[in-house]
Computed example of a mutant assay.
Amino acid sequence: MIELKQLTKTYKTRNKPTTALANLNLSVQKGEIFGVIGHSGAGKSTLIRCINLLERPTSGEVWVGGVNLTSLGQKELQIQRRKISMIFQHFNLLSSSTVYDNIAFPLTLIRTPNSTIKAKVMELLSLVGLEEHKDKYPAQLSGGQKQRVGIARALASDPDVLLCDEATSALDPQTTDSILNLLLDINKRFKLTILLITHEMHVIQNICDRVAVIHDGDIVEQGPVAQVFLKPQHAVTREFIYRESSGQNAYNLILPNSNKGFTQRVKITFLGEQTYDSVLSQIVRETGVNFAILQGTISTIKQVPYGQLLVSFEGDPAGIDQTISKLRARNLDVEVMN
């Protein structure tokens, strides 16, 4: 659905040119929720604005729905942009217009009949749960309600792609969760392709199918969220993961000397229903190895449970090796830490 090919964006400044994107390649499949995460200044906002050509790339190509947007004239581009909607961190609502009129705004621009506008707006008000607020103005709404108006407005033109520019960054955690659940529902209901940028790992973890990590204007790591989250390869990715899980201290523990013989520290990753199974206790009973849990986490990645344990095995080296082999034979990821 979205294909970025060798995308480069350079800004001319007084002192020297600044490169925001450097030969970036990215592919987003139809109907998926794709997240791009990165620190401030990494190029996230430039990337998302290049997709609908609010920022025109210095070089490279932007393909959306099989159309090369970078090859179009202004009139053709305006037509294609109707298939791409966007929601923003600070909502960008019309302050002097009601909720109803804000949602109707994209339809009035293309001179849609009033009867059609009314039916569409009422449908969207119901979808985002704002029927009772249709005559209010943005100043009378909470942050979460404003973002729901922004989402409804973005859906008014029946887009194929929804771009989310830090859509939850200005919201409290509870409101963030409600907006993420709404985006999940919209994705499932309309098979809408959603690309979101964020600096918050829990946003990626909660709703995305795949994720790309952007750093210094390029993609340094990408893949299915579970793969990237549980086995991060790049230092920037590991920083996001460990900051989210607050596990960085646990993974650097210095174990005291043990009088029980050989010790081996391992990280065990569970995914899916195995997260709740007693696999570890079953296997150590078979091998006779003792263990101590140093740190543990159970959470979900887009409603799929996962768990991670940092464990110290104590006992005979051959028994510990057998324990690790048996865990791996049960399709668990086991990483030897020392």
Results as ranks from 00 to 15, higher is better:
Met1His: 09
Glu3Pro: 04
Tyr11Cys: 10
Gly35Tyr: 03
Ser40Cys: 06
Ser40Asp: 07
Ser45Cys: 08
Thr46Pro: 02
Cys50Pro: 05
Glu55Met: 05
Arg56Ile: 04
Gly60Asn: 13
Val62Trp: 06
Gly65His: 01
Arg81Trp: 07
Arg82Asp: 13
Met86Leu: 09
Ile87Asn: 01
Phe88Met: 04
Phe91Lys: 01
Ser96Met: 00
Ala104Leu: 13
Phe105Ser: 08
Phe105Ile: 03
Arg111Pro: 00
Thr116Gly: 00
Lys120Glu: 12
Glu131Ile: 07
Glu131Met: 09
Arg153Phe: 11
Asp158Ser: 15
Pro159Thr: 14
Asp160Pro: 04
Leu163Val: 02
Leu171Arg: 07
Thr175Lys: 07
Leu184Pro: 00
Met201Ile: 15
Val203Lys: 05
Cys208Asn: 07
Cys208Asp: 07
Ala212Glu: 06
Val220Leu: 11
Gln222Pro: 03
Ala226Met: 05
Val228Glu: 01
Phe229Ser: 02
Arg238Glu: 11
Arg243Thr: 08
Asn249Glu: 15
Ser258Asp: 10
Gln264Cys: 13
Gly272Glu: 13
Asp277Pro: 00
Ser281Asn: 13
Val284Ile: 15
Thr287Asn: 04
Gly288Phe: 10
Lys302Tyr: 12
Tyr306Ser: 09
Gly307Asp: 06
Leu309Cys: 04
Val311Asn: 05
Asp321Trp: 00
Asp333Lys: 09
